[in-house]
Amino acid sequence: MENDKVKLGRNDKCWCNSGLKYKKCHLDREREIPVSKAEALKFSKSNSQRKACYAPASMHEDCDKRIVQAHTLSKSSSLKAIADPGNHVMGVVMNLPSLMRNNGRWVPEKIGINQASTFTGFCAVHDRILFSCLENEKFTGTDEQCFALMFRSLSKEIYAKEGGWRSSDFAKKADKGKLQAEQVYIQEFVRLHQSGLNAAMTELNNLKTNLDRILLSRQFSEIESVIFTFSEPLPIAVSSILSPERDFDGTKIQDLNNLTVSTEQVCFNAFSSEGNGYVVFSWLGTSAIIRRFVRSLIKIPTDRIFNTLLYFFFAKAENTYSSPEWWDSLSNKQRENIGNMIMSGVEFFGSPTSRVDHSVDYNAAALVEIRFSNSEISS
C-alpha cells in the first residue's frame, strides 16, 4: 500500500478512498501538524451538544424548535429515587475529557441529576407529549408505557451512533504528522469502524421506522415486554438497547460479525416508582431471537435475578446510574468488580488485564413478580 501511494500522481484519487485528489488529501500528510488535545476536546464538546428532535418526521411541523435536555430516565421519579441529598447520582461520563481524566478507564463518578442520562434529542413539545405517560402517570406496565420506554431508549441510541460516526470521521485526522504506514493503519481502522456503524445505524433506523409507525397508529400492542417487579426501589437506573450476541445461558443467538444479516434488538430499562423497582425488556413482536434471549433470563433462579441483571447492565449499558449511598456501601472488591464490568465492553486490544469476578455478590432486591405483555413466553 505504501509503495502504491508513492506512485500516485498529484491529481489521482487518494488511496484512502476519501474521493479527494491525492494533492488535496494525503500528499505530505506526514508533514502536517498533529491534532492537538484542545482541538479534540473542542470537537468532543460540540459533538455531545448536537440538537435534533427524534419524533416521527410527520410530527415535526408541531416542533417548537426549542430542543431540550431530554432525560432517557425519569428525573422526577427514577433519578430522584437514587440521588443523594445533593441530587447527585453515580454514572460514567462517556466523553474524551472523562477518559483522559481517569487514565483511559471509564469510572463511575458523581453527576447531577439535571445532567444524568440526558441528550438533546427532542424538542420541548414532543418530549412532553411522547413521554407524559411515564412522567405524569403511575407506572403500571401499560402497552403505551412500555412503548415509550422503548422509543426513548432507541432515540438515545441513534443519537449516540450518529455521534460515533462524527467521532470516527474526526479520527481520520489523527494521522496528521504520522508516517505513511501509520496513516494506512489509522484509515483502515476507521474504515472498519464505520462499516460496523453503518450496519448498526441501518438496523436502528429500520427499528425506528417501525416504532414511528406504531406510535402514529397507536398500535402499542405490537410491542412485547417482560416486566420484573421488585419489592423496593432499585439502587440503579438504566435505559439502553442491545443486539444480544448470546443469551443468558451463553449460547450464541446472533452473529454480530456478519454485517450482511440484520440483527434483532431489545430495549431494557431499570427504574423505581412509588416504592417499587422495575426492570422492563421490550422488543418488536416479530423478534423470535429476542424471545429466546428473554426465555433464558426468566429461567434464572429468582434469588439470582437481581445480581444477573446488575452484571448485565454494567457490562452492556453505558447509560447506567447508581445510588451514591449504595455505591459507598460496596466493598473495594465490589467496586473494582463493577469497574471491570464496565471496561469489559471497551477493551478492544487483547484480553483485559482484569477479569470480571462473577462470584462477587451484591445485596439483592427481592423479586416479587414477572409479568408479560403481549407475549406468549411462559416462565
Rank of each mutant, 00 (worst) to 15 (best):
P235H: 06
L256I: 10
D28N: 12
E162C: 08
L297T: 01
K333F: 01
T229C: 01
R10F: 14
P108M: 00
H26E: 04
R191T: 10
E30R: 05
D169Q: 04
Y54M: 13
L96A: 01
G104T: 09
M150P: 03
K23M: 05
S354K: 08
P352G: 04
W283S: 04
R50F: 06
R128Y: 11
V238S: 00
T142M: 04
D84A: 14
E135R: 03
S221E: 11
F348Q: 11
Q183M: 13
S98F: 11
Q183N: 08
A315T: 11
R191W: 14
G285Q: 15
Q145A: 10
D255Y: 12
Y22W: 12
T209M: 15
S77T: 09
Y159D: 12
I82V: 07
E347Q: 06
S282L: 08
F189G: 00
E203T: 15
S132L: 08
I342W: 12
L73W: 06
E274V: 08
V92I: 15
D62Q: 09
K5F: 09
S98V: 02
N337H: 05
E336T: 13
T202A: 14
E222I: 02
A160I: 03
M150D: 05
L309N: 00
S132F: 14
L216N: 13
D303R: 08
Y185W: 06
L134N: 09
L27C: 06
N307L: 02
N269K: 02
N3L: 15
R101W: 14
S296M: 01
N269L: 01
